[in-house]
């Protein structure tokens, strides 16, 4: 009679993650991703703050069954960054149509070789973000696809292309 009770598998339900815990745990991921996107620490700082402010407002909508807090926060970070880019683009168009894009930091990631920094600068934002998510933050293909809103195959293709381009740029710089 008691055997059934004893053999029943024990289930452990983790207590729900608080926003503070999620922020503490994934701050570096969000910041790193935004840094690779913007290539500017100050902008990445601002966008990281904006991301967490927005995330706090939307925290009640977070459903752990639909994805991890990390992918959810990175998704918000991406939207925040794109909104910022869009606003910048509109501002530039409005103020000075022929103006050059604002200069970015040459060494936006500390410790990275100058050749790699330069090569990264030649990549598009889309290529840098897939590198950041898959290589730097080490999300898997499905999680990256979820953040970017594309298929895992597209993620794989985009990553492969970015790495190839990066490798080529670095090699060319070495030859020079």
């Amino acid at each position: 009679m008691h055997t059934a009770t004893l053999t029943r598998p024990l289930t452990y339900t983790a207590p729900p993650l608080t926003f503070a815990e999620a922020a503490e745990r994934h701050l570096d991921d969000v910041f790193g991703y935004l840094l690779y996107l913007t290539r500017d620490r100050a902008t990445a700082d601002d966008l990281t703050g904006a991301t967490f402010e927005k995330a706090l407002r939307q925290w009640s909508r977070f459903d752990p069954r639909r994805g991890t807090a990390r992918t959810w926060l990175l998704g918000i970070a991406r939207t925040t960054a794109l909104d910022s880019f869009r606003a910048d683009s509109r501002r530039r168009k409005r103020e000075e149509a022929a103006a050059e894009p604002e200069a970015r930091e040459a060494d936006f990631v500390e410790g990275l070789s100058p050749a790699l920094q330069t090569a990264l600068a030649t990549l598009s934002v889309g290529e840098r973000e897939v590198l950041a998510l898959r290589i730097v933050i080490e999300l898997d293909g499905d999680q990256t696809a979820r953040v970017l809103g594309i298929s895992p195959t597209a993620v794989s293709t985009r990553l492969s292309r970015a790495l190839h381009k990066l490798e080529e740029k670095v090699r060319n710089d070495d030859l020079r």
């Binding site: 608080t18 926003f19 503070a20 922020a23 503490e24 701050l27 570096d28 910041f31 790193g32 840094l35 690779y36 700082d45 990281t48 703050g49 967490f52 402010e53 706090l56 925290w59 990631v109 500390e110 410790g111 990275l112 790699l116 590198l131 290589i135 730097v136 933050i137 080490e138």
Partner: peptide
């Protein structure tokens, strides 16, 4: 790239903690 993974500095960390504290 993985070895030089960026990390948020103390100022940004404090700022985000302050945001989270309002939860």
């Amino acid at each position: 790239l993985q070895a030089t993974r960026p990390a948020a500095d103390g100022v940004l960390r404090d700022r985000v903690r302050a945001i989270a504290a309002t939860e």
